[in-house]
C-alpha cells in the first residue's frame, strides 16, 4: 500500500488517485477550519500590530498602517514584563519537573505490579483538571493569605518575617504556575516511564553502574521524549498565563506578566496594536525557544 506509487499497470494507477480524493475529503473541513480560525487570526494579529490610531478618532479606533514603532515602544515599555514572564515560566517548569519526575516514576515503574492502584493514582494526578483552574488558584490564595494558619504558623515559628507576605509576591506566582501545570508535566512523564524496560536498569547495574549513575545514564535519557513533551506542555501555557499573576489571584503590583499586559491592553484600554505586537513577540519567542529546545534534545518527531 505504502509503496503503491511504484506499482505498474492501470489498475494500480487509479487506486492512489481515488485514495487521495478520500484523503482530501477527510482533511478539507478540519484544515479549512484551522486556516480560518487559527491562521487568519494570526495574520490579523500581525496586521493589527502595525496599525496606527485614527487621527482625532475615538479610543480603540485604528487604521491600517506600517508602524514598526509599535514594536519598539512595546519592548521599551514592557520589556520587563516579557523577561519576567519567561523567568517565571522557566522556574515553574523546573519546579514542576522536579516535583513530577519521582511521582511519575513511582506510578509508572514502581506501581506496575498493581494496575488498579496505578490507575487510581493517575486519577489523583488528573483530579485537579476536574475542578476549575480559577477556583483552585483562588483556594491557594485563601490558604496562603496573611491571615491563614499556614502563614501565621510560619510566622509564629519565625520561619517568615512578621511583616512578610506570600500572596502578591513573585514566589506566589511561580508557586501557582507550578501547581497548576503539574499534571501537564506528570502525565507525559508517566506515559513514557510506564514503557521503561526495567531490565535495562538491571543491565545498567549489572555493568557496574551505581543506582544514581544508572538513573542519569539510562533512565533519564530513555525518558527524554517524556521530559520534552512535559516541559513544552508546562512552559508554553505558563509563559502566556495571566491568571496566577493577576492581582485578584496570586499576583501583586510587581508581578504582572506579558499575558496580563496583553489582556489589559486588548480588553480594557482597547489599545489593540500594543496587545497584538506583544502577542506576536510572545509567540515568536516561544517558537524559537521550543525549536531550539526540541532540536537540542534530539526529539523532533513529537507530533
Amino acid at each position: 500500500m505504502a509503496f503503491s506509487a511504484f506499482a505498474t499497470g492501470t489498475a494500480q494507477e487509479q487506486a492512489p488517485r481515488r485514495k487521495s480524493k478520500i484523503a482530501l475529503l477527510l482533511l478539507l473541513p478540519g484544515i479549512l477550519y484551522l486556516m480560518l480560525f487559527f491562521l487568519v487570526p494570526l495574520v490579523s494579529l500581525v496586521i493589527t500590530s502595525f496599525q496606527a490610531p485614527v487621527p482625532y478618532g475615538d479610543i480603540g479606533e485604528f487604521q491600517t498602517a506600517f508602524k514598526w514603532q509599535n514594536y519598539v515602544d512595546v519592548v521599551n515599555t514592557y520589556g520587563e514584563h516579557i523577561l519576567r514572564s519567561f523567568g517565571y515560566a522557566i522556574l515553574a517548569t523546573i519546579f514542576a519537573l522536579l516535583f513530577s519526575y519521582p511521582l511519575a516514576y513511582f506510578i509508572g515503574v514502581k506501581a506496575r505490579r498493581w494496575p488498579l492502584l496505578q490507575n487510581l493514582m493517575l486519577v489523583l494526578v488528573i483530579a485537579p483538571f476536574f475542578i476549575s483552574f480559577l477556583l483552585r488558584t483562588l483556594a491557594w490564595k485563601s490558604i496562603l493569605s496573611d491571615e491563614s494558619f499556614v502563614i501565621s504558623g510560619l510566622k509564629a515559628l519565625s520561619l517568615m518575617a512578621p511583616d512578610a507576605h506570600f500572596t502578591g509576591t513573585a514566589a506566589a506566582v511561580v508557586f501557582g504556575l507550578t501547581y497548576n501545570f503539574i499534571p501537564f508535566m506528570t502525565l507525559p512523564l508517566y506515559s513514557n516511564l510506564q514503557q521503561l524496560d526495567t531490565r535495562l536498569l538491571e543491565a545498567g547495574s549489572d555493568l557496574y553502574s551505581t543506582p544514581s549513575k544508572t538513573f542519569f545514564k539510562v533512565t533519564v535519557p530513555l525518558s527524554m521524549t517524556g521530559i520534552v513533551s512535559g516541559v513544552l506542555l508546562t512552559f508554553i501555557p505558563a509563559a502566556g498565563d495571566y491568571i496566577n499573576a493577576s492581582r485578584d489571584f496570586l499576583g501583586g503590583t510587581g508581578t504582572a506578566m506579558i499575558g496580563n499586559v496583553i489582556e489589559s491592553n486588548f480588553l480594557v484600554t482597547l489599545n489593540y496594536p500594543v496587545a497584538a505586537a506583544l502577542s506576536i513577540i510572545l509567540m515568536a519567542v516561544i517558537l524559537v525557544m521550543v525549536t531550539v529546545y526540541v532540536k537540542r534534545s534530539g526529539t523532533e518527531d513529537l507530533l
Binding site: 500500500m1 509503496f3 503503491s4 511504484f6 506499482a7 505498474t8 499497470g9 494500480q12
Partner: peptide
C-alpha cells in the same frame, strides 16, 4: 495474498 503489488 495481494497485500503487495509486484513491480514486474
Amino acid at each position: 495474498a495481494g497485500l503487495e503489488d509486484p513491480t514486474e
